[in-house]
Design a protein around this nucleic acid. Structure first.
Lengths: 249, 249
DNA sequence: GGGAATTAGTGTAAACTATACACTAGCCAG
DNA sequence: CTGGCTAGTGTATAGTTTACACTAATTCCC
């Protein structure tokens, strides 16, 4: 045990990139720092990991204290431990991201939550510490995730239209998708339940509402299925390759 | 700073899953523990992160002290911090994996290295601590990696045959691949340089030797290309799907 | 109440990619 | 010089991805 004491010298935290989707924009929940260092700057919500607390539990706690939400999609992404990432000492942080439905989010009475605000991810810049790097790592992971698993549902309200779903994917992937191909792909997965309801109060033809088929989704995960979404090349107008790579040497 | 002292209570380590490839088998370098806890059991090489050392640097150090190798493929995978994962106290560990060429590995004089041994990954079981879980996580990541990037080269000697390369992929993916399709795919990436040499001293038609085109590989990474390798279904004999998913509702 | 505005919803053909599959080539050993 | 062994090679078919444009349903405005 002697060796141990010598290395009991790092503070250990979690930071949580909380994604939401609203008004067609992918958003992230940030805290305005009330104290040094980086006072007044925006930062990711995070806190120390308690000595008797698992890492995932710490990330969940941070999330719940801020949003009041439990049972949320949460994933560990990467650990950041550059020696000088915190000016006051050695702080190693495990980055998580979570996906929540903004419609379910209500400001919590905690002091931290009062300083929280949603920011469009495309407009975020200049965060405290190395949080920009952390945000980018999590955003990158989310992009990857969304291409291989239909996690988009975690960010949408229980009932949604296909166009909303498409806009969500477009916001995450930062690209445009072809409407017909998107629908083909999504519907062919059989993970949507057509609710036989339509939108109300919109000044155009109302769209059908769908919900997400949780049961099939579990199966989907268990079987390790995956799917791919590819960018529409509509705008690029570049001609297709005619020749195939010649395999013979 | 007061808050800090209260949480300076965790020991912080890195563990390194060092993969190699030899005799057609994917291997991992393990250390036989000379002390409690888990004395006599096999464990992943790892050590404390020094207070003035970045995480990646710590992982590199562990690797170099053990194998003498530098400039090796190294990737952070996941952080493990269950409260009771170490019986002597709270120890949070960042798992890395590295890919090395076993042919370049020589036993180092360090005391740790003398207790190191390569183990076929398929036969490893019952490691110390939660190292089995860590190994699995890293193996899983490697499988994923190898499907999207041609990192296999990191594990092979500078000159290799296509069959060796295929065996490597089969060992990592734990599946069989179709010889012709594998060659087509690999060669179509144009990342191999045909050395116009052949094997010597084999009791059969000698195979051509290739080396890896580092320059093109860098480009490949920069452009974010990816490729996919899929399992041969030769043995399964299951009929192909005839009907396509019907998109119309 | 009719037309303009707006978004929903739908199919197909062509390009591309993945798959299954079997024989000949070249070397060594006996 | 034959048998044993692994290297090396092509093609046809199934399946997937892509590009692309019009009609349908509703509200709003006049």
């Amino acid at each position: 045990m002697n060796e141990f004491n010598e290395y009991f010298k790092s503070a250990f935290t979690v930071d949580n990139v909380i994604f939401g989707f609203d008004e067609g924009d992918l958003k992230v929940l940030l805290i305005n720092r009330g104290e040094e260092p980086y006072k007044g700057k925006w930062a990711l919500p995070g806190y120390f990991v308690y000595p008797t607390e698992d890492l995932d539990a710490a990330a969940k706690r941070v999330l719940e204290e801020l949003t009041g939400l439990r049972n949320v999609y949460l994933e560990q992404v990467k650990t950041f431990g550059a020696v000088n990432r915190h000016p006051f000492g050695r702080v190693i942080t495990v980055a998580y991201f979570s996906l929540i439905k903004i419609s379910h989010y209500t400001i919590q009475p905690s002091s931290i939550a009062k300083k929280a605000k949603w920011h469009s991810i495309s407009k975020v810049e200049d965060l405290a510490f190395d949080h920009m790097e952390i945000l980018n790592a999590c955003f990158h992971r989310l992009k990857w995730l969304v291409r291989s698993r239909p996690v988009g549902f975690e960010l949408l309200p229980p009932k949604f239209t296909l166009t909303e779903l498409q806009h969500l994917y477009e916001a995450i992937l930062e690209t445009e998708l072809d409407k017909r191909n998107f629908r083909k792909k999504i519907l062919s997965m059989n993970l949507l339940i057509d609710l036989d309801e339509t939108q109300e109060g919109v000044a155009h033809r109302p769209a059908r509402l769908y919900k997400f088929d949780k049961e099939k989704y579990e199966k989907f995960l268990a079987e390790g299925f995956s799917f791919e979404l590819k960018e529409s090349k509509k705008k690029e107008k570049k001609p297709r390759k005619k020749a195939r790579a010649n395999v013979a040497s």
